[in-house]
Computed example of a mutant assay.
Amino acid sequence: PLEQRETIIKFAGGSSIRAPYRQRLILSTNLNVRTTIDDAFARRLLYQVLVDRPTDDNFKQIIRNVARGQGVTDDALLEEMARKLLYWYKRDGRVIRAADPRNLFRMLDATLDEGQKLSDVLTMDLMERVYRQYPLSLEKDATGYSVTEATEEEFRSSFQEEAAKHGVPAERADELAGQALAYFRAQGRFLRPVDAGNLFAMADGARPAEEPLAQFLTSESLDALLAEYPNFTPADADRMRGACGLGRE
Rank of each mutant, 00 (worst) to 15 (best):
L2I: 15
R5L: 02
T7F: 06
G14Q: 06
Y21Q: 03
Y21E: 02
R24I: 15
R24C: 11
L25D: 03
I26W: 00
N30C: 14
N30M: 10
N30Y: 10
N32G: 06
N32L: 05
T35W: 05
T36S: 03
A42V: 11
R44D: 14
Y47V: 15
Y47G: 01
V49E: 07
V51T: 10
R53A: 14
T55D: 08
D56T: 06
F59R: 07
G69Q: 14
G69C: 13
V72M: 14
T73H: 13
D74L: 11
D74T: 14
L77W: 15
M81K: 13
A82R: 04
K84C: 10
L86P: 08
W88C: 00
Y89V: 13
D92A: 01
G93N: 12
I96N: 04
R97V: 14
A99T: 15
D100L: 08
P101K: 02
L104K: 04
M107W: 03
M107H: 00
D109K: 09
D109N: 14
A110H: 08
A110K: 00
T111I: 04
T111Q: 03
L112D: 01
D120T: 04
V121G: 05
T123H: 09
M124P: 06
M124Q: 10
M124S: 10
M127Y: 02
E128M: 09
E128G: 05
L136V: 09
S137G: 00
S137D: 00
T143P: 10
Y145G: 10
V147R: 04
E149V: 13
T151N: 06
E152R: 09
F155A: 01
F159C: 06
Q160Y: 08
E162V: 11
A163E: 04
K165W: 00
G167N: 02
V168I: 15
V168W: 09
P169K: 02
R172M: 13
A173P: 03
E175N: 05
G188C: 09
R189H: 12
F190G: 08
L191A: 07
P193K: 08
A196F: 13
L199F: 00
M202R: 05
A203N: 01
R207N: 05
A214R: 04
T218I: 08
S219G: 14
L222M: 08
L225N: 11
L225P: 08
L226F: 12
A227F: 07
E228Q: 14
Y229M: 10
P230T: 09
P234S: 11
A235D: 15
A237D: 12
M240F: 11
R241H: 08
G242H: 12
G242V: 12
L246F: 10
R248Y: 09
